[in-house]
Design a binder for these strands. Structure first.
Lengths: 224, 224
DNA sequence: GTCTATAAGTAGATAGAC
DNA sequence: GTCTATCTACTTATAGAC
């Protein structure tokens, strides 16, 4: 049985994944509650009733889409915060890894951000709120380390600063998807690297202590 | 007839406004498409059918809620950009007036932001996209004036900078409503003034030229 | 201006044939 | 694993009594 698992089982997993990908695209673009199971079914060329062979409810699809993304997010933040680096390198690494993850799983993170009020109302997603809070606390620890080390200015409100930066990265990534459109219609083309540099510089300027504005931006540390 | 207008007409206007206020609260909290006309009717203690005496469609309610807010937004930005002030004072005034308006009409602006994809799909709301784009261009002119005056650093990407700041103000104001909740549950209490100072400083640090990081933040000019 | 009553359509989800 | 067929509930909106 174990030796044959690859054959039949993999095919079934793929089918699930195709459905989840279609659902993620819909949820990210139009919202979870606005998307109908018929639209998802149409996207993968089956009838809506057939979806219920793979998933018990529409909400179960949502859960599968966001779970891994938010747990990875917490893991990243905690790993970087616990590493042996100076606070500024940690901070830059947090931003760059976060943006890299946002770009790679943009639908999942757009959904997590856009449906945050839905998640907060639903007891099934309490773990998600908790994981995001823990990621937040890891960021906060990095900021406070930076103030102690004299790299960041003492007047920082870590709560406001981190929540602002996190929203900035989330909405910036969502806007990057093009489907959004932003306040302009003539949309310039930016590479992910260009955007990452922009946001890194933007965030660093907001936390650095007075004399350090002009210093070079440290590279992110992949072994963090 | 003109002399009696105040009596009966005002009462009818008030009724409309009570309904619109309820609708705005629902749309801002749960989204336009997710909100049902029955919920709005329940909030003002009438039956759903009776709403159609005041409004032809649910979308008409949405239009009434957002129209004034977005036209005011454009007017503010254009008035400040066209005033005779240095670019930094204009920039600070833009931010402070914008946040003040966001706080005053928080539901309308939260709806405009959260339903932006809906507005972009709907031909009836093209004027809204256009007005926001024009406000955007007014901000951009201020930024470019600042670069010319040497107040802001030359490397600014005005497109990225303004769209980032605008999203920052919008999401910051929405988060300020409490009903949101943000990544933390233990939510600190901030006054609107404290928040305004924070965002003004945050944005200013991102645009000021190298040597000017420590200079005092100019007061906003109300006569702008 | 609100109610009663209802039309016409669509939502998420289920049962059983194949 | 997908289809046919359908249930129940709920959606926006309308018609006409009061």
């Amino acid at each position: 049985m174990a030796s044959r698992q690859g054959g039949t089982h993999k095919k079934s997993v793929d089918r699930r994944q195709v459905i989840l990908d279609a659902a993620a695209r819909r949820f990210a673009e139009f919202g979870f509650e606005t998307t109908t199971v018929r639209q998802i079914a149409d996207d993968v060329n089956i009838l809506s009733g057939s979806l219920y062979h793979h998933f018990a409810t529409k909400e179960e699809m949502l859960g599968e889409i966001v779970r891994g993304a938010v747990l990875d997010q917490r893991e990243r933040a905690q790993r970087i915060a616990a590493s042996r680096l100076d606070a500024e390198t940690k901070f830059v690494t947090l931003i760059r890894e976060e943006l890299s993850a946002l770009a790679e799983r943009i639908e999942a993170y757009a959904i997590i951000f856009n449906e945050r009020k839905f998640f907060r109302r639903s007891p099934d997603f309490l773990y998600l709120i908790k994981a995001r809070k823990e990621a937040f606390e890891a960021w906060r620890a990095v900021l406070e380390q930076g103030v102690e080390e004299g790299l960041f200015h003492a007047g920082i409100d870590s709560y406001l600063t981190i929540s602002t930066i996190m929203r900035m990265l989330n909405t910036g990534a969502d806007w990057y998807r093009h489907e959004d459109g932003s306040p302009l219609d003539a949309m310039a083309e930016y590479s992910l690297e260009a955007l990452t540099d922009f946001y890194t510089g933007f965030a660093l300027r907001s936390v650095r202590s007075a004399g350090r504005a002009g210093e070079p931006i440290p590279a992110a540390m992949r072994q963090a």
